[in-house]
């Protein structure tokens, strides 16, 4: 089967700093893939390259076998396949538009009758536990948790086959982060999607992802299936990351 996302020999420099250094990876369809790294490791740059928000100096990104292009036609095609969930979902909703307007934009993009889009939206809102009344509100009038769900609902409305979540647990308390992670897992299973999770949280990635890559200073230092990578890390940096992670020790 064709890979959902494949990256070959991606290189990128910002002035003196090397953001991506010969990164190659393949994300199989229908799996959950983790991109792990600390700040400055290049994991966010990698995500932006996949989304087409960042051009590479060298190397290729293919989405479902199609090479990534920056033309408008390609962007329109890609939007139906690949949707991001940004780190601060509240900030990914345009502050001066009602949520109904934002959802309506999807109908225009998909060239779909508004009624059909709203019908699908009703199902999605229901599944995400959002009240219908939320559509008449502005993003600043809803809670952070709701904004997160609205952003996810909007991404799902595009019927993508690949979801990319950037630091989904950043800024969330442990008592609520699981809610979002469980939701993402459910969606992935139900829709048989490919889920890419970018995170610095090793414990979360270990549990949610089948395969992962560990990034450091623009390099992919280790990649493979999560179970064996966490059990017997081959790279020294992966070992350091794992040993630095605070443990709940019970003597």
């Amino acid at each position: 089967m064709m890979d959902a996302i494949s990256i070959s020999k991606a290189r990128l420099r910002f002035g003196q700093t090397i953001a991506l250094d010969d990164v190659s990876l393949a994300i199989p369809q229908g799996t959950c893939f983790g991109i792990v790294g600390e700040s400055g490791s290049g994991k966010t740059t990698l995500m932006r390259a996949i989304l087409g928000l960042q051009k590479l100096d060298q190397g290729d990104v293919c989405i479902l076998g199609m090479p990534l292009s920056h033309s408008r036609a390609a962007l329109k095609k890609r939007a139906r396949v690949l949707q991001p969930i940004f780190q601060d979902p509240a900030a990914s909703l345009s502050p001066r538009s009602r949520i109904r307007t934002l959802m309506g934009e999807v109908a225009t993009v998909l060239n779909e009758p508004l009624a059909v889009t709203y019908e699908r939206l009703g199902v999605i809102l229901n599944r995400l536990g959002l009240p219908k009344g939320i559509l008449d509100k502005y993003p600043h009038e809803i809670s952070g948790g709701q904004a997160r769900r609205v952003a996810i609902a909007r991404a799902l409305l595009m019927k993508p086959s690949i979801l990319i979540a950037d630091e989904p647990t950043a800024g969330l308390d442990v008592s609520v982060q699981g809610d979002l992670l469980n939701l993402l897992q459910d969606i992935r299973q139900l829709e048989n999607m490919t889920l890419v999770v970018i995170s610095h949280n090793l414990a979360v990635v270990r549990l949610i992802a089948e395969n992962a890559v560990v990034m450091r200073a623009g390099k992919a230092v280790e990649s493979g299936d999560v179970a064996s990578m966490f059990q017997s890390p081959r790279d020294a940096y992966t070992r350091e990351l794992l040993s630095a992670w605070p443990r709940l020790r019970v003597e």
């Binding site: 989304l51 928000l53 408008r72 962007l75 329109k76 890609r78 939007a79 690949l82 949707q83 991001p84 940004f86 780190q87 601060d88 979902p89 900030a91 990914s92 909703l93 345009s94 502050p95 934009e105 999807v106 225009t108 993009v109 952003a151 909007r154 595009m158």
Partner: peptide, 15 residues
């Protein structure tokens, strides 16, 4: 993010 989200949705630039 909100502008990038619009771009990723392929919303028309004029909109």
């Amino acid at each position: 993010s909100f502008i990038e989200a619009e771009r990723m949705l392929a919303v028309h630039p004029a909109t």
